[in-house]
Nucleic acid binder design. Structure first.
Lengths: 201, 201
DNA sequence: ATAATTTTACTTACCGTTAAGTAAGGAGAT
DNA sequence: ATCTCCTTACTTAACGGTAAGTAAAATTAT
């Protein structure tokens, strides 16, 4: 297997801990411990805690922007929008740590994420705008605020995952045991159908 | 004007600070300062920081559950669902601090919110389940996971508000200045139409 | 009515812990 | 011998929480 540098190892473990506990409650001591090193070793590789956090999130934003652009270029507007949603949803499945971190960032107004990440987010939003505009020109989509559609996609999917423990607590107080939890692929599919249907003329 | 007790004053200011900075980054010293008292005075009224936080959020969950129940009893399933979404959205407008706190809680898996609040949330979910079931019986709604609909409503609306600074940063990187921000009432209305349309048979 | 006592609602001063960050030095590779 | 990559041992600051004391209001006793 490909060798992973110590620096990459720190980022990987830090990502896991940031995703579990959030930025404030993640201590560098804890990161060091799971990496089997000491705290100052982290300071050798990163300027400070914020720099480590940036190293954790920035590559993820870049990757998702690439995935989105690669997968939403061809087809009808409906197909491209479906692919946009599916690509985003599948990225969350394969990057659960990013899911949790991104959800917290949105709830926190994303004040701590660097401009570098904002640019990557802009790439995805621009792609969504292209798709919605194309749909309008095709005469299949109603005009709608792109940011609302983006929020419907992004926050519904990320929060559906982060809110799982909340759902389980709520489910315990509701008698109806017949309802079972659908898997996340089905949720992506359902959401996609609803958003497309809601947008159609 | 109605006299407000010192204890209520602490809760009010604490709610504002918790909503701005989150639980961890809100210090009791800061709460005390805006109340023009000292930190131990807070400990006179509340057992600890967590107890103050509970006093901040619990009444809000109770109020929203009441509003939802009061406003979604009559009419067709479509009307009741529209009222459900509108009532929730308008509560967020009139309780912006709750909006921010609730968004953070969902992103954080709601692990810190007490069972008392979960019960109130259950009341609203039960109401949504009633409405969706009624819609199925009327033959107008497709069967869908209620939690997905709940997430589409709750997280889209709360995050649309919390993500405002994020949107503004993104907007700066996109040339198109013609698009203007719709007000939140319009967002509620748009979301409502899309969810209802997406659910129709 | 008024004096004695108690309770309410705080303040001042402080403790203990925790976590970010640093200074200095050491082991191993080149 | 010097550079890389770390460790040990530390400083600093902040924050939750507490002990002890007090002014003023309320309650009770005389």
């Amino acid at each position: 297997m490909a060798k992973i540098s110590k620096k990459e190892l720190i980022v990987k473990h830090a990502r896991s801990l940031f995703s579990q506990h959030g930025y404030e409650l993640t201590t560098l001591e804890a990161v060091a411990k799971v990496c089997s090193i000491t705290k100052p070793a982290i300071y050798y590789h990163f300027e400070d805690k914020a720099a480590l956090y940036r190293a954790v999130i920035c590559p993820e934003f870049t990757t998702i922007a690439q995935h989105i652009e690669e997968n939403t270029q061809v087809g009808t507007a409906v197909q491209r929008l479906e692919s946009y949603i599916k690509t985003f949803g599948e990225f969350l499945i394969s990057h659960p740590d990013f899911n949790a971190i991104f959800a917290r960032e949105i709830a926190n107004s994303a004040i701590t994420i660097p401009d570098e990440c904002i640019e990557q987010l802009s790439r995805t939003i621009k792609q969504l705008i292209f798709i919605l505009d194309a749909g309008e020109k095709e005469g299949v989509f109603q005009k709608e605020t792109p940011f609302l559609i983006q929020m419907m996609i992004v926050t519904t999917l990320t929060s559906y995952n982060t809110a799982r423990p909340l759902r389980e607590r709520i489910a315990q107080t509701i008698e109806d045991k017949s309802r079972q939890e659908p898997n996340f692929e089905n949720i992506i599919e359902s959401l996609s159908k609803k958003i497309v249907k809601g947008l159609l003329c």
